[in-house]
Simulated scan of single mutants.
Amino acid sequence: MVDGQLGEFLRARREAVHPADVGLETGVRRRRVPGLRREEVALRSGISAEYYIRLEQGRERRPSPRVVAALARALLLDHAAEDYLRLLAGLSRDPQGRPLTTSADMAALVGSLAGTPAFAHDRVLEVIESNPLARALSPVFSPGVNLMRAVFLDSRLGELYLNLDEMRMRLVAYLRLQAAAPPQDPRLAPLVAELSDASPDFAALWARHDVTPASSGVNRIHHRLVGDFELRFERLCFAGSDDPVLVIYHAAPGTPGETALRELARLGAPLPSAQNPLDDIQSRQTSATSRQPASMVSE
């Protein structure tokens, strides 16, 4: 935190709140300060006026999460402004995990990308939305499937992804980065423990402590219906949030990938059920929830 930013932010937001907005009578006499007085903010926040003054003057720089939440209510901050206040106070952003994008909005957005495979996943790489072309490309991109379990616990994916080892490295490094970002997802430790127990390959990659945002890259694909081709992927985050993440696959014009996607869209069908790894992946995930996971691999 840059010295003075917390106090400057509090002062600016205090001055922007009209007393009538918080139910205070302004009377006929003109107020000497714009917005709220320091004492009024302190009273609305349930803290002493002296403590609030220290915050504005920069003599106190580490308010507790409770105080920050109270200040956000007193100053009528929206979610983005409250997150910014938390960052200025040295706290993690969005402690309650408020969804910044609703499931309905996400479903509409993913569904609108009809010409290219698109899906969204959460912080532990579980698919939450996907469009038909993504599912035609691979049933792994079906809602409810965890991508980490899929790439390590289903050997048949090696037939689909020619660069499976590279993709595994990227996904583990991406998950490692997510593990360090607050707030901690309670599903992460059981997932890491499960995969470490079930897959020596995952355990070895996790122990390397590689980290990467994996924001873009190339996957080489062998699809039994449309042949071999390459697709680029872009991982996009929404403003102010890393959950959910939108992943879009696309092909350069005139490439085999463009032809393959056009053919998949025409066929409009995923892999035949005999070759479909989805059922096995989902059955593994269902059984995993009934297991008591081992302790998380040492960081």
Rank of each mutant, 00 (worst) to 15 (best):
Q96M: 12
V110I: 09
R59T: 10
L100E: 11
A70L: 08
V127T: 05
R135K: 10
L75R: 01
P63K: 09
P65Q: 02
D122F: 08
G46C: 10
V68G: 00
L125A: 15
Q57T: 10
D78E: 11
V41S: 02
A74R: 00
L125V: 10
R54I: 01
L91T: 00
V110Y: 05
N131C: 11
G90R: 03
R32I: 10
E82P: 05
R123V: 11
M148F: 09
R93H: 13
R61Y: 00
D105G: 14
L91E: 01
N131E: 11
L36N: 00
I47V: 13
P63S: 10
E60D: 15
R38Y: 04
A69L: 03
L88Q: 13
L109Y: 11
H79L: 15
P117C: 06
A150M: 07
H79W: 08
G46V: 11
E40A: 04
L113I: 15
Y52N: 02
A108S: 12
R44H: 09
D78Y: 06
R54Y: 12
E126H: 13
D105C: 11
I128Q: 15
V127R: 04
A72T: 04
G46H: 03
G46A: 09
G90Y: 01
H79S: 13
A72G: 15
A49M: 06
A104P: 06
L36W: 00
Y51N: 01
T102H: 10
L71T: 06
R93G: 09
F119W: 08
M106P: 12
L85S: 09
I128Y: 05
L109D: 03
S103A: 15
L71H: 00
E82G: 07
R98L: 15
A108I: 06
G58H: 09
R135P: 00
D105I: 12
S130V: 05
V127S: 08
A134K: 02
L147P: 02
S92T: 09
V110D: 02
H121P: 04
L133T: 10
V68D: 06
H121K: 15
E40K: 07
Q57V: 09
V124G: 08
R54Q: 13
H79T: 14
R59K: 15
S48N: 06
V145K: 01
N146G: 06
P99D: 13
R123H: 06
P34G: 07
S103Q: 15
L55P: 01
G144N: 03
T116G: 10
E129S: 15
E56T: 05
Y52G: 03
A107I: 12
L55T: 04
G144K: 07
S138V: 06
A81K: 12
R38A: 02
E39D: 10
L36G: 03
R54H: 13
L87R: 14
A136W: 04
P117K: 03
L76N: 12
V140K: 02
N131M: 01
L77K: 04
A134D: 07
P139W: 06
V127W: 01
Y84F: 11
Y84G: 08
R123Q: 14
L36R: 01
